[in-house]
C-alpha cells in the first residue's frame, strides 16, 4: 500500500501529465481550424501597427523572448517601446506561446518548418506580387489574420502580378 508521501508524489505526476496532455489537445484543436487567440490590446496596438499582430501560438516561448529582447533592432527597424508595454507584451507572448511549435533560430515565423510546409504551393511570383510583397503580410491572403483566424474559409490568394 502507498504511504502518504508516495501518493502525493504520484498525484503530482498524474496532474502534470494531465495538464500537459490537455495543453497539447488545445494546441492541436487550434491548429486544426487555424484559429488562434490574439486578445491583448497593448500587443495589438504596439505591435499590430506595423505588422499583423501575429498570434502568440505561432512561435515558441524562447523565440518570443529573443524577439522581445532586441526590439531596437527588430528585423532591420527600430521597434522600441516603453518599458511597461514591453514587459506586458513579453508576458502575454510567453504565456500564449505554442507548446508544440518549437523554436525558430532566425526568429522569423516564415522560417518555421510548419510555415514552409503550409505555404509550399505559393510561388515566388506570388510572394513578390504588389498585393502581397512579403510573407509578413499575412492579411494579403488570410483576410481575417488580424483576428488570428487563418482558416482556409477566409483564405484568398491574390492573382499573380509581379512588381
Amino acid at each position: 500500500m502507498l504511504d502518504d508521501r508516495r501518493r502525493k508524489w504520484f498525484d503530482g505526476i498524474v496532474w502534470t501529465a494531465a495538464t500537459v496532455y490537455i495543453a497539447m489537445l488545445v494546441d492541436t484543436a487550434q491548429a486544426a481550424d487555424h484559429r488562434y487567440p490574439v486578445d491583448n490590446a497593448t500587443y495589438q496596438s504596439e505591435c499590430g501597427s506595423c505588422h499583423v499582430a501575429y498570434p502568440p501560438a505561432l512561435l515558441g516561448a524562447g523565440t518570443w523572448r529573443e524577439i522581445m529582447r532586441g526590439l531596437d533592432r527588430h528585423f532591420g527597424t527600430d521597434a522600441s517601446i516603453g518599458e511597461s508595454a514591453q514587459a506586458q507584451i513579453k508576458a502575454y507572448l510567453e504565456a500564449g506561446a505554442g507548446r508544440s511549435r518549437g523554436e525558430v533560430p532566425t526568429l522569423r515565423i516564415s522560417d518555421a518548418a510548419w510555415f514552409r510546409k503550409e505555404h509550399d504551393g505559393i510561388t515566388a511570383a506570388t510572394w513578390k506580387s504588389s498585393a502581397v510583397g512579403s510573407p509578413a503580410n499575412c492579411g494579403a491572403c488570410h483576410r481575417q489574420a488580424d483576428r488570428g483566424d487563418f482558416d482556409e474559409r477566409s483564405l484568398r490568394v491574390p492573382a499573380k502580378e509581379v512588381r
Binding site: 501597427s49 506595423c50 502581397v132 510583397g133 512579403s134 509578413a136 503580410n137
Partner: peptide, 9 residues
C-alpha cells in the same frame, strides 16, 4: 503602407 511588411497605415 509599411515598406517591409505591407501593413496598411
Amino acid at each position: 503602407r509599411h515598406a517591409t511588411t505591407g501593413r496598411s497605415i
